[in-house]
Nucleic acid binder design. Structure first.
Lengths: 101, 101
DNA sequence: CAGTTATATATCTGTCAACGAATATGTCTC
DNA sequence: GAGACATATTCGTTGACAGATATATAACTG
């Protein structure tokens, strides 16, 4: 079974997602920014799209890829209980002090 | 390279972590709760421990495993920008309304 | 329409790593 | 010695990846 987690486990795909934080990008930019070959980039983009993490739209003869933030929500939900433990833990005082700076 | 993401990509390991949310548990409980063999459970626990996601302490002739919430922080940090996009997005109104119920 | 650019998809190859299952053995503690 | 656990080994399977290459599609350009 291919889960969001296993999709995110691949560094190349996280690289692509990081590039997309700045905004929608055509495939050519992602090829250049990731150092992957064009076919390989398209393959990872398909996997990201099937996982609901990015979406595609046409722009003339190019395809723009953009983040699809809803796709990250289930990971966030799984992660939340663990993060909550951290927030309730010993780091709480330190973060409180940091907020006072 | 074995990252926190690739460690979390394995369903069996997420199962073990989920069992540990309720509190520290000896290996025997995790074997029973996960349905894995004992050697297999120990293997996954070692991987989780090397990733900093759990910690171990002795308890008589048993070993107690517990969550180590700091280990989840880097994932949370990577995820944060994407979640922020979601929070700033169209879901905001809906969640606002939900809060008013 | 022909040619070109941008992208998608497919195929094949080779490599590599992870997994479960089974089993054996070591170690520590009671 | 028995129970609880860790570690290691072997085996067989499966799946993911990069690289290379070829081809398909769609849109723009002249």
């Amino acid at each position: 079974m291919t889960t969001t987690f296993s999709v995110l486990a691949e560094p190349a795909r996280r690289d692509i997602l990081d590039l997309l934080i700045a905004g929608p990008r055509p495939v050519g930019d992602l090829v250049a920014g990731s150092g992957l070959s064009q076919p390989n980039t398209s393959r990872h983009l398909r996997i990201l799209r099937e996982a609901g993490l990015v979406e595609r739209r046409a722009d003339g003869q190019r395809r723009l890829y953009a983040l699809r933030p809803e796709g990250f929500v289930d990971v966030e939900r799984w992660l939340a209980p663990y993060v909550r433990l951290w927030q309730d833990g010993l780091g709480a005082l330190e973060r409180h002090l940091n907020r006072m700076e």
